[in-house]
Amino acid sequence: MRFLYSVFIVAVLSAAAAYFLPWWSVAVVCFLAAMFMKQSGGRAFLMGFCGVGLQWLTIALLSDVANDHILSSRMASLFHLPSYVLFIAVTVFIGGLVGGLAALAGALLSPKAAVRQV
């Protein structure tokens, strides 16, 4: 439950950050969040991955459905992907990877994590 909360919070905070700041601000959110939480590296990665992934998925899906997949189909074809679904998947994966890596980096540098592992 706590994990789901953290994912949700990362999603909301990264959405807010990306709205006002450059796209990579989502990584800063994940990094900081992981730094101040006590959790294993794996869980941190998952939190960042799912948090940013969820945010990117939500916004991409909302845009895509309202758009009848026009843009996503053309972008998919531009990148030689067979379907717009894959273009959404690639989007979510890249967002998730950025969030996951940033959170993992945060967890590794977290003072709390350092304490726990000693």
Partner: peptide
């Protein structure tokens, strides 16, 4: 790919 400001922002709603 950033859904907020990247290409997804050019997905104009059909309605």
């Amino acid at each position: 790919l950033d859904p907020m400001a990247g290409c997804w922002a050019n997905a104009e709603p059909v309605n």
